[in-house]
Nucleic acid binder design. Sequence first.
DNA 1: TCTTTATTTAGCTAATTGCCTAAGTATGTC
DNA 2: GACATACTTAGGCAATTAGCTAAATAAAGA
Lengths: 99, 99
Amino acid sequence: MLVHAEVKRFKPQAAVLKALAHPARLLIVDELSRGERCVCELTELVGARMPTVSRHLSLLKHAGIVDDEKRGAQVFYRLRVPCVLNFFKCVQAVQAGGK
Amino acid sequence: MLVHAEVKRFKPQAAVLKALAHPARLLIVDELSRGERCVCELTELVGARMPTVSRHLSLLKHAGIVDDEKRGAQVFYRLRVPCVLNFFKCVQAVQAGGK
DNA sequence: TCTTTATTTAGCTAATTGCCTAAGTATGTC
DNA sequence: GACATACTTAGGCAATTAGCTAAATAAAGA
């Protein structure tokens, strides 16, 4: 099946949005906006198993949205691109009905 | 399986991002930023079948991102929430490497 | 070293998504 | 009315995603 060049141009950008397009990952990003957190903290926050949360984090990391740093036995994640927080406002505008 | 209330809080916001998280839909949004377009124009732009494009548009509409208006035999779509265009800049920042 | 804690990777299954074709609806024209 | 055009809806199939458990890896402590 044929895909236009124009569509392909937006593939990397879609990948970033896709990485954010999950409630658990948005919760994580929101939490990281208040400072770095280890996987165990995020696991408790999200309320899923650690492997599940680890995969979400891996996805966000590969998308370039977060960074990780190992300190001792723990891995801390932090927001690498704070401007994604602006999305929350606009998304609210969408739900409110335009603007 | 148990899902925390915190995660649920982000579900509607994730739905909006999910609606945008596809290259064809981003292309459509980008095109609509320059004015309203009928489905046939967008179909040609995207380079897929009309039913496929119609479904993409339906998704964007249900997410609250675009509006449609039938005029004669054609249906015109327009951007309802221009602030989504800001996403493009931030996504580029993600790819560029932070900020 | 042995054990515990923190995290990731692998492998499985269920659910979702995206594309297609075919069929249905609505408008405009002859 | 018959037909063409514009669009949406339905149904099916392949690919992706999200969750889980189990197993692997790594650091810390007894």
